[in-house]
């Protein structure tokens, strides 16, 4: 099982900046257009938590309209890192489902697919990257039933 190391806001921002391309769109933030201070502020506004799992950063933010659902993000295709995050959310946040908004072609797509997420549609021209608009795909995952809540 991959270990998750929780990052404080400053380390989270620095980590996303170093992750470069893979961190663009991570929970909706973008280290290319936003500096560390802005990233920190944006993540705080989302009440987001960022973890390091090996070379990958994973993160989650609660859905304010449904406390049992979490938005999740990852900087890589590493399935184990994402699984560790989902395990954390089920165990310590009692999450029952997850949503991920991922740019078309992003590395994290592969990890989501392997973790049983399903594609639920595409937000057209949702972000601007390197001079062109890109679609953002909506992925949904269901937590395995552990015990009756």
């Amino acid at each position: 099982m991959t270990d998750l190391i929780p990052l404080d806001p400053a380390s989270a921002a620095a980590g996303l900046r170093e992750a470069g391309e893979g961190a663009r769109g991570f929970l909706g933030v973008d280290p290319v257009t936003e500096n560390d201070a802005l990233l920190t502020r944006r993540l705080a506004a989302l009440d987001a938590q960022v973890f390091r799992a090996g070379d990958t950063l994973v993160g989650a933010a609660p859905n304010p309209h449904q406390p049992r659902q979490a938005y999740v993000a990852s900087t890589s295709a590493d399935e184990a890192a994402l699984r560790a995050l989902l395990g954390f959310l089920v165990t310590y946040r009692r999450a029952t489902s997850y949503v991920a908004l991922v740019e078309r072609g992003a590395a994290a797509t592969e990890a989501l697919r392997r973790c049983g997420f399903a594609e639920r549609g595409a937000l057209r021209d949702h972000r601007h990257r390197s001079g062109a608009p890109v679609d953002v795909l909506v992925w949904f995952g269901k937590a395995a039933e552990t015990c009756p809540s």
């Binding site: 309209h65 659902q69 949503v99 639920r120 549609g121 949904f140």
Partner: peptide
């Protein structure tokens, strides 16, 4: 309509 997200809103006692 572009996408749908199951269980996204708590309404009337269920998601």
């Amino acid at each position: 309509r572009e996408a749908s997200v199951p269980e996204h809103l708590w309404l009337g006692g269920r998601a």
